[in-house]
């Protein structure tokens, strides 16, 4: 079944305590070359038929109305799963 992926990230100026905690763990693991971590959300919306422009427009609408709160988050991607997203292809 095809999926539409929506990715949401906290805005840059918003504190991301999860990311901060992970960054702290990386320092303790001696991986301090990764100086910061930010954690966002990925939604996978399954659709029954092929992914059409209408479905993508609809997905963009719910991304901005429900999936993200654009006061604190940015929608950074709405679209078909990219090749790197395909678990079978990895």
């Amino acid at each position: 079944m095809p999926i539409i992926v929506v990715e949401v990230m906290p805005k840059a100026e918003i504190l991301d305590p999860q990311g901060k905690a992970v960054a702290g763990a990386l320092v303790r693991l001696d991986k301090s070359e990764f100086s910061a971590v930010r954690i966002g959300k990925r939604f996978e919306l399954t659709v029954e038929g092929p992914i059409t422009d209408e479905l993508l427009a609809e997905a963009r609408e719910i991304a901005n109305d429900l999936l993200a709160n654009t006061v604190i988050e940015d929608v950074i991607y709405v679209g078909e799963a990219r090749p790197a997203d395909d678990a079978q292809g990895a």
């Binding site: 918003i14 305590p17 006061v71 604190i72």
Partner: peptide
Amino acid sequence: LVESHLLPGGLVRNDHG
């Protein structure tokens, strides 16, 4: 209320976590 847009702005995790 903020998620309903009856009030402006948003509420995020406490700064001290």
